[in-house]
């Protein structure tokens, strides 16, 4: 069973009356993952001086898109991924387009394999995500090298990949809880 139909008891014959307030509430809940990416991108672009702030921006966007693309694609359509990617691009200063392209590719993979990923265990899903996070970081590093016409140290890219892979479990725990509660449009 696909995760997006995980609350069958709410799809009863008696539906709550569709009011404007309910429609707004549903839209807000459905937009929660995208809003999470946008707010974290803006927040992490502020000069807090936290080590790895830029890498965290990338990591949070990747984890969020991956989770919601296979878990509840209705809350994360392709256009939303594109717009979120653009916001992350604007509030970061890496090579332009790399984060956006990585997000769209990881969205495509997760969305295409969503049935298989829902059946797989957490560890297997995490491993597959790790491969794509590492590939995205490598792609970013390759583009920076191409732009600088020099072989730069791959250490920042490795750190970014490790941070993205490392924060995935804790973010998944948050998202699983959110999918049942505050980010669940069926509970509006």
């Amino acid at each position: 069973m696909v995760a997006e139909n995980s609350t069958p008891h709410l799809h009863s014959a008696v539906e709550p009356k569709q009011t404007f307030r309910r429609a707004l509430d549903m839209a807000a809940r459905a937009a929660m993952p995208s809003l999470f990416i946008v707010f974290s991108a803006i927040l992490l672009s502020a000069p807090f001086g936290i080590p790895g702030q830029a890498q965290l921006q990338f990591g949070i966007a990747m984890c969020t898109v991956w989770f919601w693309a296979y878990s509840r694609p209705r809350s994360m359509p392709a256009l939303a991924v594109f717009l979120c990617g653009l916001v992350v691009e604007i509030f970061s200063f890496g090579p332009p387009g790399t984060v956006l392209l990585s997000l769209l590719v990881i969205y495509g993979v997760a969305h295409h394999w969503r049935y298989g990923l829902s059946r797989l265990g957490f560890i297997a899903g995490w491993l597959i995500f790790s491969v794509f996070a590492a590939l995205a970081s490598f792609f970013q590093w390759a583009l920076v090298c191409l732009h600088a016409v020099a072989l730069l140290s791959p250490a920042p890219g490795l750190f970014q990949a490790a941070l993205t892979i490392g924060i995935y479990p804790s973010l998944t725990a948050l998202f699983v809880w959110g999918r049942r509660t505050f980010a669940n449009p069926d509970q509006a």
Partner: peptide, 16 residues
């Protein structure tokens, strides 16, 4: 999705 990916590739090229 393919159209959006093409746009993203365009942005990468524009950045270069």
């Amino acid at each position: 999705l393919p159209i959006l990916i093409l746009l993203a590739v365009g942005l990468v090229l524009l950045g270069l």
